[in-house]
Design a protein around this nucleic acid. Structure first.
Ligand SMILES: [Mn+2]
Ligand SMILES: [Mn+2]
Ligand SMILES: [Zn+2]
Ligand SMILES: [Zn+2]
Lengths: 143, 143
DNA sequence: GTGCTTATTGTAACTTATTACAATAAAAAG
DNA sequence: CTTTTTATTGTAATAAGTTACAATAAGCAC
């Protein structure tokens, strides 16, 4: 288990929640994957080793981990949600044609966030966004 | 039916697709609502008058209308999708605490889009985003 | 109008996601 | 280690969304 994984489990205990076997297993799958996973993918990863862990437990724990700020839910292209460990602040830019996806550093959005805070009076949370477009290779076709 | 609704139906015909009763009814519900609706809400709007229209037809037509650029799908807070007529370019900013939602003009995102196009080489599509934060009234609690 | 073509639909079966509630096991106390 | 407490789980039922395929009706030619 990585250093930050240990930090998360300590935090869960510190906040008075329980470190259950399914909960830790879900966190481990997400850490090992290192990217976005759907609830069904997580279920399939766990099932061979922990066949008793049920779907509702996956969904409930993903929600629990999200509400506690340990994972993030991000809508995939077709309406489903994918989950990932909250780590470095980033966003995505996906090619509508070939699907190629690159990461955007959150620092690039910082000026926008400040402008939005000024013009609306809201305090903005760092939300996770996926932008769409055409990559350099597909761009000619896209126009 | 509004002027732009007529434009949409003409476009559908012009592109070789059929103007079916369910398809027009779904468009009308979205036009009359004037905002975001879930597939289930659309189904419930239609059911009293057109009880034979089925759920798969709702989903298929929403997908059809989206792929043809007439409606937009936008993820609601809890992973579901909401649909709206594609009209003026806008985004949303929702308070995580009280749910109050305000619209953001797309022009405010234009500088970001240009910066992203320069730094990535992608050509960006105008994607619909929902930002989260705390509104002026909830902000004190949020900090 | 009648008949033809085929995009679109409804039905049925299935997958994915959510809810209610009794059973379980994690944490803490004795 | 044993008991107590209750957060968390599994089961069963339900809701939301998708797929396969035969039946239908929108558009067109006559
Ligand atoms: Mn991500
Ligand atoms: Mn909108
Ligand atoms: Zn591409
Ligand atoms: Zn608020």
């Amino acid at each position: 288990m990585t250093c930050s994984a240990t930090h998360v489990t300590e935090q869960i205990r510190a906040r008075g929640f329980r470190l259950t076997q399914p909960r830790m297993a879900i966190l481990n799958v997400l850490y090992e994957a290192g990217g976005h996973l759907t609830p069904t993918e997580i279920f399939e990863h766990l099932h061979p080793k922990l066949p008793h862990v049920s779907e509702p437990t996956i969904y409930r724990n993903l929600d629990f981990l999200r509400l506690n700020g340990f994972v993030r839910a991000t809508p995939t292209g077709n309406g489903r949600l994918e989950y990932e460990i909250v780590g470095h602040p980033h966003h995505h830019l996906r090619c509508q044609d070939c699907g190629t996806e690159i990461e955007i550093e959150h620092s690039l959005l910082q000026p926008l966030y400040e402008r939005l805070e000024q013009s609306t009076g809201y305090r903005l949370t760092e939300t996770h966004h996926t932008f769409l477009g055409y990559c350099p290779r597909c761009k000619p076709k896209g126009e």
